[in-house]
Design a binder for these strands. Sequence first.
DNA 1: ATGAAAGTGAAAACCATTTTCATTTATAAG
DNA 2: CTTATAAATGAAAATGGTTTTCACTTTCAT
Lengths: 154, 154
Amino acid sequence: MTLISINALAESWLDSLLDSGYRLTAPRRAIVSIVAASPRALDAVEIYDLGRDEHPRLGLVTVYRTLEKLEQLGLVQRVHQPDGCNMYLRSPEGHEHLLLCKSCGQMEYFRGDDLTKLIEDTSRRSGYQIQEHWLQLFGLCAGCQPQNSPKEDG
Amino acid sequence: MTLISINALAESWLDSLLDSGYRLTAPRRAIVSIVAASPRALDAVEIYDLGRDEHPRLGLVTVYRTLEKLEQLGLVQRVHQPDGCNMYLRSPEGHEHLLLCKSCGQMEYFRGDDLTKLIEDTSRRSGYQIQEHWLQLFGLCAGCQPQNSPKEDG
DNA sequence: ATGAAAGTGAAAACCATTTTCATTTATAAG
DNA sequence: CTTATAAATGAAAATGGTTTTCACTTTCAT
């Protein structure tokens, strides 16, 4: 994703906020520019710290409130961590799932087309009407894998 | 699962605790009997409340500490909720995934055999070495679905 | 410019979970 | 059956991410 398209993404988020009746403020612009540009999930405090470079008076509360709005608009996805905390990541196009590197925090989306069948099968067998699902894979990205180790059985 | 086998399950958990060098105490017996017998995921406070019927002096802290041990022994599985809190559920036999009813809290395990292929494919395509995964489906169990509503597009 | 409503941020509140620490208890040894 | 001791307990306090409160500021329509 180039700088130009990242800026376009941030602009489109600001447009969405406006379209939904929200106002454009300096704190929101700072938060939007950071989250739209980040290829990895960030937690609220990271966004807060980065945001204060751009807008020193920024408050952590505003970070949470803005993320909540961006999530409601479907622009940002909340990522649940094993420790119960949340990180925030721009939404993918269409429905994809998350792949997170436990070492560097890098994330990628991947398409889970196969999952549709799994969910349908499970719904049929169990009788459940399935409304929502979480699939997150955790591991080591290519760059974080030990380069020298003999191949392992994983 | 019959009463007899539930009691056997609780006994086997107590044996596991002993085998790992832990002591058997009244609070632990109460917690084990509740969690081993429950077909649905319970949160810490639910276990605390149920546990005090059996052992009135039980403390919430002990519930957390015992659940931590049971989880480490692989006997209990922690279920992450969308709100960030945790519930606790006896572990399935082998690797299965969770299906939770958003209405009544009933849960079922289902086998995600198909997921193995998805994970392998994703690992190959992304270069990630995948170590862990979460798959949880949320919906309405058969009993909680609106019986009278006209069929919907879900 | 002006006013009303939305937005902000510091501080306080919240709440699930964890830590602290003095007391109690299970277990092994005698 | 005692006794010693290390583990376990529970009340209270601490923690830490997140949310609420509220007085003040800012946006935007007029």
